[in-house]
Structures are given as C-alpha cells and as structure tokens.
C-alpha cells in the first residue's frame, strides 16, 4: 500500500514540536543565565524556514518522493533546523549590564509553550481522525 495514511500534517506537526521544544530550551537558557555576566540572550527562529519547506522550496536534504522517510519519517521537513542567534539588543534589561530581561523571557516562554501545546493537540486530533475512520465510525 503506497498511500501514506499518516499524510496530512503529521510530519509537519512533528517537526514543529521538535522546533518548539528546542526553542523552549533556548529561552530557558536565557532565564537561567539572566545574572551571568557577559551573557547575551539567544533567539531562535524557524517559521520562515518551515514555510519554505512546506512550499517545497527548502534546500538541503530533500526527498525525491514524499514516501521516502527522513530520519523521523518527516520527509521534506527533516532538514529544517531553525537558527539561533544572539542579536545585540538595545535594551539593558534591568540595567545591571546583562541585557536579559527576565520578564520578556517569561512572556516568550509562555507563548512558546502555548504554541507547543497547540501543535501537540493538532497532532493528537489528526491521529484521532485516522483512528475514527479505521473504526468506520462505529
């Protein structure tokens, strides 16, 4: 059977969860190092890269056939890694020479958490739908 019953957004959402999880670690690092001298906050972004991959424009490890498995079986989303940078921001945080603003990081971690849970929920519903159809609605 060549049809991929796990089609739809399963691979995409799996990747989103990976990326959101990593972003969570990045923000947690910022919070942990809020008082470390010389530390500047790291920022992770991946939405643009993800969008490119979704539209099939992503460079890197690409698969020629959507049925080919990547390392997770996510096919064309496998190569999306997101990028982390430490932009020099003008904010001085609370003025102690460390530019991390804990309050901002808290807001960021909160938003990231909600988006993670949203993606997990969407993935869960996707599998529920497949199971429902397999049961023929009985």
């Amino acid at each position: 059977m060549s049809a991929d019953i796990f089609g739809g957004n399963a691979g995409f959402l799996h990747k989103v969860l990976d990326l959101r999880g990593e972003k969570h670690q990045v923000i947690a690092s910022n919070i942990a190092n809020a008082d470390t001298p010389g530390y500047s906050p790291a920022r992770m972004s991946f939405q643009e890269e993800l969008k490119q991959a979704a539209e099939g424009n992503h460079m890197g490890m690409s698969t020629t056939d959507p049925a080919h498995m990547g390392t997770h079986g996510n096919g064309r989303f496998d190569a999306v890694t997101g990028s982390i940078s430490r932009p020099l921001e003008n904010s001085e945080g609370i003025g102690d020479g460390n530019p991390v603003s804990v309050d901002q990081e808290m807001v960021r971690i909160s938003e990231n958490q909600i988006r993670y849970e949203a993606a997990a929920q969407m993935l869960s519903r996707h599998f529920d739908k497949i199971k429902f159809v397999i049961r023929s609605g009985k």
Partner: peptide, 8 residues
C-alpha cells in the same frame, strides 16, 4: 494548521 505554525 500549516498557516498557523509557519506564522502566516
């Protein structure tokens, strides 16, 4: 789903 997760 895709639009939300890619930020569109």
């Amino acid at each position: 789903v895709q639009a939300f997760n890619t930020g569109e």
